[in-house]
């Protein structure tokens, strides 16, 4: 029982990272019907930005929660700027081109980002600086025989906070309404005065900022990131987004959580080498029963 609880917590904290990333995929897909394959790389860039910021901040003598918050803000802002630039340079000129061109452009961007980071930051792994790492994160809370890390609690709760924040943003602000309007009918939205380009930019900025946050979370969680970080994580998060129903925000969160739990349970109670296989079997099974994903809407209703 304690073990099951432990694995559930592990799965959820993994799922939160997937969910934060899946949100970026799903939001961009919702607005542009584009699968932003460079999103995983934006996440990797965010992780690097966070580690660099942590190094600078430690040099200025800050520490603890203040440092962590600054690291988060910097990584999110940096990722947002990268996301904006990617959209502006690689996607906007191609917005009316065939989908395939965008896809190829997206792959080009991800290679570019990977190599740019490799060139500027070196080929080896990057480690979150020990001095910047707040010791209290390593504390554990024993619950019913399981050991739940302070870090895990903090990371899950900050992920949930970000997701709640996103939900409020999308449902209750003018920008959010504009996003939903553009997602449903770009022409009608433009007609009532929504500036499409701005909404698209906002979407990329928000999705990328979430990816930046996920990058920091991962570098705290595992201490170590490499330039290839974005590839598998991006693939997994994309799977999570499709699983939950691409284009659906609650779907991305649900898909992320589900994928994290499935992987962890499979690795623990099945065989660790099959966990990816099981995750993809789950995806195929869901898509066979519900082609639009668990919470996805059918595209037929689109005007």
């Amino acid at each position: 029982m304690a073990d099951f609880l432990q694995q559930t917590v592990n799965g959820l904290s993994l799922g939160c990272v997937y969910a934060l990333l899946a949100l970026g995929y799903t939001m961009v897909y919702g607005i542009l019907q584009l699968i932003n394959f460079a999103h995983g790389e934006v996440y990797m860039v965010g992780a690097y930005a966070g580690i660099l910021a942590a190094g600078w901040l430690v040099a200025t003598g800050s520490s603890g929660l203040l440092l962590l918050s600054c690291v988060f803000l910097f990584a999110m802002a940096y990722a947002a700027v990268v996301g904006l630039a990617v959209e502006r340079i690689a996607y906007r000129p191609l917005r009316d081109a065939p989908r395939l061109c965008l896809l190829i452009s997206a792959m080009g961007v991800s290679f570019f980002l990977q190599n740019a980071v490799m060139l500027t930051q070196g080929k080896g792994d990057k480690v979150f600086p020990q001095e910047a790492y707040p010791a209290f994160l390593d504390g554990v809370i024993p619950v019913a025989g399981a050991t739940i890390g302070v870090k895990q609690v903090l990371l899950v709760s900050s992920s949930l906070l970000l997701m709640a924040f996103l939900r409020v943003l999308v449902l209750h602000t003018r920008t959010g309404r504009a996003m939903r309007a553009v997602a449903q009918d770009r022409v009608a939205a433009a007609l009532v005065g929504v500036r499409i380009d701005r909404v698209v930019s906002m979407t990329f900025a928000i999705g990328s900022a979430l990816a930046g946050a996920a990058g920091v979370i991962v570098s705290l969680e595992y201490r170590q990131v490499g330039t290839t970080l974005g590839f598998t994580a991006g693939l997994k998060a994309f799977t999570a987004a499709v699983l939950g129903g691409i284009g659906s925000i609650p779907g991305a969160v649900l898909g992320g959580g589900l994928l994290g739990l499935t992987e962890t349970y499979t690795a623990r109670y099945g065989a660790s080498e099959y966990k990816d296989a099981v995750a993809f079997v789950l995806l195929i099974a869901v898509l066979l029963l519900r082609p639009t994903g668990i919470l996805g809407h059918s595209q037929a209703g689109r005007a």
């Binding site: 003018r174 920008t175 504009a178 939903r180 449903q184 009608a188 939205a189 007609l191 005065g193 005007a303």
Partner: peptide, 26 residues
């Protein structure tokens, strides 16, 4: 529009609310 362009998955009020977009400055 000649053929309707409503936001299909929104309620009536939400549709109209999108219309107020340009009035809000944010």
């Amino acid at each position: 529009f000649q053929n309707l362009r409503l936001f299909g998955s929104m309620t009536c009020a939400q549709n109209v609310r999108i219309g107020t977009h340009r009035l809000e400055n944010e």
